[in-house]
Design a protein around this nucleic acid. Structure first.
Lengths: 120, 120
DNA sequence: CTGTCAATTGAATGATTGTTCAATCATACC
DNA sequence: GGTATGATTGAACAATCATTCAATTGACAG
């Protein structure tokens, strides 16, 4: 049978491994990679994409966001929690309602950069 | 019992619905939302984040990427396919090896904007 | 042709995640 | 206090997705 166990490594690393060592050394820290992919993850969902865009236009309460997007209040609230945990949105309570808005200009710039890319 | 069916809508839309109507009108198209979230999705995975960063430094073959990230060649190849399908990387064949690099400067700018945000 | 190596691919598994439904909290009005 | 409404939360379900393992393709060397 001779079932050779593939060890999933290759004999030569590019020319001689120098490139690999150099890039490895310049690699991002685990924390940077985690933060980066987490940030992009938040923007990667269609519902959250719409919420962020809507909040970039106007301060809105949960109910209004639900109306703009045409989805349930519960679904909106769940996604707002994700955005809150990531510090992408801030909120303000008034009577029974909670008004949300973007936390700062950072996310808006990143979001617009992505939008620019999509629109070419 | 009186199990009132919650209809998940609210009586009043903000002041009187003007804000909701305005934001709704300015909303992104479905295609824009889809493209945006797909683009961010590609950047949202730690493995792909590292691959893109590595390729922003050097042109590398699959084997080298595997060596830099410390994961299997198969796993790298699967992710490269995703990146290829999204036109984020391009490749060049030489002998038995396939060398990958970033497709253009668009993604690098978007990626760096995200990195800047994470590093504050 | 045969054997070897880089890379791709498919199937299967495990983990993550978005939505729905129901219950609950909090505030305002009668 | 009791009721109605805006919002949050938890559990459950379905869908998506990244990784692993195994098999396969394509190119080169002997």
């Amino acid at each position: 049978m001779s079932v050779k166990k593939r060890d999933d490594t290759c004999a030569i690393k590019s020319v001689d491994g120098k490139k690999v060592a150099a890039v490895k050394k310049a690699m991002l820290t685990d924390e940077e990679v985690r933060d980066l992919s987490e940030t992009f993850s938040v923007l990667a969902d269609p519902t959250r994409t719409k919420i962020i865009y809507a909040l970039s236009k106007e301060e809105l309460c949960v109910c209004d966001i639900s109306g703009v997007l045409g989805i349930s209040i519960s679904a909106v609230s769940h996604q707002l929690r994700v955005l809150r945990n990531m510090r992408l949105v801030k909120f303000r309570k008034e009577a029974k309602m909670v008004f949300y808005s973007l936390d700062d200009g950072h996310i808006e710039r990143l979001f617009n950069e992505g939008l620019k890319h999509v629109r070419e």
